[in-house]
Amino acid sequence: MIEVRWYARAGQGAWTASNLLAMAAVIDGKYVQSFPAFGPERSGAPMFAFTRVSSEPILVHSMIYEPGVVVVLDHTLISSRDTAAGLKNGGVLVLNYSGSIEKLYEMLGVSRGLYKVYVAPATELAMELLKRPITSTAMLGALVKATNIVSMDAVVKALKERFPSPLAERNIELVKRAFEKTVEV
């Protein structure tokens, strides 16, 4: 079972991204759970969403405390305090970040090699293609590059189910561009 924690500001679409990942995994024939860290949402407030993906039915119904993957949708949420909290050794960090890698590791407060760290310029790409800083789908593309949880085909199918045209096409392009631009650092 793979457990993903999404970290974002309310309004950036972390729950949507989590649901899209789950929908794609269902298309791939997997069992899923997707849920937010429940609370009355205030736009801009930090929030979590969680996804579980497994080839077996999922029994556990709790929040995720020791994720294998952490995705951060907003670069201002990258910190040594909670970004990698509970992340398993060898786990994957997927960050919306463009800038100095030196500074990134300093902000994260982790030594190189402890986790697999991937970055994507999600805000820039979202501004270019959606004209707004909603980074959920871009970071989904980054996640597909960083892990093999779901296939790109399934993500495209999920986007077509979730969004009407032409929003679906724009988001598909965003996912693919983000996939290309995502690098391990």
């Binding site: 929908m23 849920f35 429940f38």
Partner: peptide, 9 residues
């Protein structure tokens, strides 16, 4: 929430 707002198969 644990069920009402959790997406599952």
């Amino acid at each position: 929430f644990f069920l009402s707002h959790t997406l599952e198969n």
